[in-house]
Design a protein around this nucleic acid. Structure first.
Lengths: 330, 330
DNA sequence: CTGTTAGCGCCTTCAT
DNA sequence: ATGAAGGCGCTAACAG
C-alpha cells in the first residue's frame, strides 16, 4: 500500500496530538474551529483514508448485510437485490453479494466469508442443492440474523418471505381452461425446493378442482437446466397434453425451444404458461401465453424490512410473509 | 453481538496463553499436537469466529477486489462478473460487487465504500454519466490499482480491456449488404462512452467502404433507456432505412417494439442487427437478425488477470487489451 | 513447545 | 480546547 497516512501522520505533520486529530475528523465541537478545518484540510492533502479495520475493532458495526443468491444471471434475483439495496442503503447499510451457483459448497464458503466479514445480517435464497440447512441457520449462533427469501427452508420456524403462488396458479389454470385445455402437464423445479412444492400443490389442486386430465408422466421435476428440461419433454409430449405449466419462464423457453426442434408449435400445438413474468418476455413475439408475476421488488423490500427490524430489536418472533402473485396474460 | 468468543476467551477457559491459542489456530507446527487439537476443538465449541478487523489491522490484506458495474440487470455484466470471480477466487480473492445504475454520485459512493473497505483493487465499468474520471483514477493515489473494462475512459493511459468491435462491425455490415441493404441507420449509446465511439466509427467506416446511404437523421445517440430509443425512432424511420444497427440487443428490442406499434414489421420492413448476442435472444422467434458477440467471459477473464498481475507487481505499464468480436447470425 | 510483550489505527475516558 | 493513556482482538518477534 503506497498510502500510509494515519491520524498519527496528520498529528505529526501538524505538531498536535492524535486525539485532537481524531476528534477534529469527527467534527467534535470540543475542537476549535480553526484546528478542525486545518486538520481536515491536511487530511485531504495527505490522502488520508480512515482505516475501517481499526474503526471496526472499536465500534463493532460493519454496516454490511450479506445477500446470497443462487445466481445473478436470473433477472428475478437481480430485481430482488435492487429492491433490497434500495431499502437498506437508506439506513446506511451496504450489500455484500454472493452467488452460490446452486452449489452447496459454494454457498457454505460464501456464508463463511460473510461471517468473517462480520456482516450484521444475512439474506439467503437457498442453493437448490442445499441438504444441510443447519449450515445456514448456524449463523444465528454467531448472533447474525438470517432472513430467507424465495428459496426458503421447509418446516422451519425461521424468518422467511416467499411468493404465495396459489392465487396466480389458480388464475393460470382458469386461463388455460378458458382456452379449452383439458390435459395439463407440469414441469417443475427440483423437489428439494419449497417453491417447487408450492407450485405442484397448486397445480394438483387446480387439476382436481377443474377436473383436468393429468398423469404421472405429465408431471416432471428438473434441476432447472436446459438439458434436464429437454430430457423430460419427450415423455410429457407422449401424453399429448394441451398445455404445459412450468416452474419459471426459463423452463418454459427451454421447453418451447425443444418443442420447435420436434416440429411442435409452442402456444399453438401446446400452450405454455409459467411463473416469473420476466421483463424480456415482453419483447418476444411468442412468449409463454401467460406468466404468474411474483413481484420480486416486493419480495426484496419485505425481506430488507424484516432484516432491518431484526437488526434493531433483539428477539423477534419468526415471521413468514407471503407475497401475492397475479397472472399476467401476454 | 451474542457471540463474544475471542482467542482470549479460549486461552482463559483452557488456562493457557493467548499466543499459544493464536498459534494453535494457525496450525503453527511449533505447538504440540495435543494442545493444538484441544484449542481447535474448544474454538468450535465456543463458536469462535476470527475477527477480521483485528486480523486486518495487523496483516493489511483484505483479499477483496471491488467491481463496479452499471447494472446487474444486463446479462452482459453478470457474465463478466462470473468470469472475474472464477479467476480471482482461485487466488483466494473475493468480490465486492457494486452497481452504479449509471449514476455518477452512486458510482462515487461505491468507490468510497471500496476505499473504506480497503479493497486491494478495483475493476470498473464506468457509469454512462461519468463526467469526472478523476474520481475513479484517484484510487491509484491510495495505492489501489484500477482496471477498466468495457466502459473504459477515452484517451487515458490506464489499464483497460474492451471489445475490439471493428471486426464484428465489418461482418455485420457485410451481412446486411448481402441482404440487399442500401440505407443503413444507427442507434448508438451515449456519446460519453468510448464504446459508442468505437461502434460509430466502425459504422461510418463500413458505410463509406460499401457506399451505403446514411444521413445525420439516421444516426442517433440514446441514453440506453427504452424511452430515448422510442424518441429517436420516428426521425430515423422517416428516412426509410433498410436496416438499423443498434448499440446493443436491448436497444434493438426497444426499437423493434416501437416499430411494431407503428405497424412496421421488424426484420421484414426494417432489418435489425446489434451488439451483444445476449443468451435469451436464442429463445426468441424474431430476434435481431444477427448480433456481434463480445465474449464477456473473455473480457472478464482478461480483466481479472490484469488485476491479479497488478496486485502482484509494483508498477506495471498501462496495457490496453482488445477482445475480438464476431458476428453471430440468428 | 509455550509465554511475554509490543504494536496495527482508532476512539474515548480521564486529566489538564 | 487539547493531550496522555488504555484498549478493541490479533500476530509476531523475542524470550525462555
Amino acid at each position: 500500500m503506497t498510502n500510509t497516512t494515519t491520524i498519527k501522520t496528520i498529528a505529526e505533520t501538524l505538531g498536535i496530538s492524535i486525539s485532537t486529530v481524531s476528534r477534529a475528523l469527527q467534527n467534535n465541537p470540543r475542537i476549535g474551529i480553526k484546528t478542525r478545518e486545518l486538520v481536515q484540510k491536511t487530511a485531504v492533502q495527505l490522502n488520508y483514508l480512515p482505516n475501517q479495520a481499526s474503526h471496526l475493532l472499536r465500534k463493532k458495526s460493519t454496516r454490511i448485510i450479506g445477500i446470497m443468491v443462487p445466481t445473478l444471471n436470473e433477472e428475478f434475483f437481480c430485481q430482488i437485490i435492487d429492491a433490497v439495496e434500495e431499502v437498506v442503503r437508506e439506513k446506511g447499510y451496504y450489500l455484500q453479494i454472493f452467488q452460490s451457483k446452486d452449489i452447496e459448497t459454494r454457498q457454505l464458503e460464501g456464508l463463511n466469508h460473510f461471517k468473517y466479514l462480520r456482516v450484521e445480517g444475512v439474506l439467503v435464497s437457498l442453493a437448490a442443492e442445499t441438504s444441510k440447512i443447519e449450515a445456514v441457520s448456524d449463523l444465528e449462533k454467531f448472533g447474525i440474523p438470517v432472513v430467507y427469501f424465495d428459496r426458503v427452508p421447509r418446516n422451519k420456524m425461521v424468518h422467511k418471505i416467499k411468493s404465495n403462488v396459489d392465487l396466480g396458479t389458480k388464475e393460470a389454470i382458469e386461463f388455460l381452461r378458458g382456452k379449452g385445455v383439458e390435459k395439463l402437464a407440469f414441469i417443475n423445479g427440483p423437489s428439494l425446493l419449497d417453491t417447487s412444492d408450492d407450485r405442484l400443490n397448486g397445480y394438483l389442486r387446480g387439476v382436481m378442482t377443474y377436473n383436468l386430465k393429468t398423469s404421472p408422466n405429465m408431471i416432471k421435476s428438473t434441476d432447472l437446466s436446459e438439458k434436464s428440461v429437454a430430457d423430460a419433454l419427450p415423455t410429457i409430449l407422449n401424453e399429448k397434453p394441451d398445455a404445459i405449466f412450468t416452474f419459471n419462464d426459463y423452463i418454459a423457453l427451454y421447453a418451447m425451444e425443444a418443442c420447435k426442434k420436434k416440429g411442435i408449435k409452442p402456444n399453438k400445438d401446446v400452450l405454455f404458461v409459467s411463473y416469473g413474468n420476466l421483463p424480456f418476455t415482453k419483447y418476444m413475439d411468442n412468449p409463454p401465453m401467460a406468466s404468474v408475476e411474483q413481484y420480486p421488488e416486493k419480495i426484496g423490500k419485505e425481506a430488507a424490512n424484516i432484516m432491518l427490524e431484526r437488526l434493531g430489536e433483539k428477539d423477534t418472533e419468526p415471521v413468514q410473509i407471503l407475497v401475492d402473485t397475479k397472472l399476467i396474460i401476454h
